[in-house]
């Protein structure tokens, strides 16, 4: 589903590459934690998968496509097969919960009949049924992140990328979000989650890929956050 072959990414303003000869393969339906300290290259890893960044060297394959060969007008189609969740939720403050989720469908041209049918379904899936008419600032952080997950998943993507989705949440709320991501993973969606949260990684016992200074220093199935960390 996702394959990185000897991928290097250097930014012109930095002497050290953000990713240095990274080779990782992630199969369909896997749940992978991407761990490492700040600046270890986790975010760059995720941005490469979306073709928001282009690698300096090596090849990135996502959903059977070689992103190097993917022409720019096909990038939107790639992104429709990938859902994204972020630490800061990124909701539209002037739209209701339903409208926020519907926005993701409207801007890819889905007809109103589909939107009206799919949005309540996905809100129920993330545990927000009955809160569709609320505004984002009326919700708790955990609920807002559920809206973001609903928006990322409403189009039923093959891959869900989560960049520190529990970074702004307290531990008990985080557990709820993790259960939700786990449920989405069980529908067959590949989930890649970058995180700092050792407790979550340790409790989930899923594959762990650890980055340090842009290199893969550990790739372990059923891993924990870190040996000594």
């Amino acid at each position: 589903m996702i394959r990185l072959e000897h991928v290097t990414k250097s930014y012109p303003t930095s002497t050290r590459p953000a990713l240095d000869d990274v080779t990782v393969e992630i199969d369909k339906g896997e749940f992978v934690f991407l761990v490492g300290s700040s600046g270890s290259g986790k975010s760059t890893f995720l941005r490469l998968l979306l073709k928001e960044e282009v690698p300096t060297g090596g090849h990135v394959h996502v959903a059977g496509k070689d992103l190097h060969k993917l022409s720019s007008w096909k990038v939107p189609a790639l992104r429709r097969s990938i859902g994204c969740v972020f630490q800061d939720f990124r909701l539209l403050p002037n739209k209701t919960v339903s409208q926020n989720v519907a926005f993701a469908l409207e801007v890819i041209g889905k007809p109103r009949s589909v939107v009206d049918k799919v949005v309540p379904e996905v809100l129920e899936l993330v545990g927000l049924d009955g809160k569709g008419k609320r505004m984002p600032d009326e919700l708790s952080g955990g609920e807002q992140q559920r809206v973001a997950v609903a928006r990322a998943f409403v189009n039923r993507p093959m891959i869900l990328l989560a960049d520190e989705p529990t970074g702004n949440l307290d531990p008990s709320t985080s557990v709820g979000i993790m259960k939700l991501l786990d449920r989405i993973n069980r529908t067959g969606t590949t989930v890649v989650m970058a995180t700092h949260d050792a407790a979550i990684v340790d409790s989930m016992r899923r594959r762990v890929v650890e980055l340090s200074d842009g290199r893969v220093v550990r790739d372990q199935s059923r891993g924990v956050y870190g040996y000594g960390a």
């Binding site: 979306l50 007008w73 939107p76 992104r79 990124r90 801007v107 890819i108 928006r151 189009n155």
Partner: peptide, 17 residues
């Protein structure tokens, strides 16, 4: 930019944005 950023992420086409 907030709206257009989300539009890009969910795969809205250039034309639509």
């Amino acid at each position: 930019r907030r709206e257009t950023g989300i539009m890009r992420l969910v795969g809205a086409s250039n034309l639509y944005i």
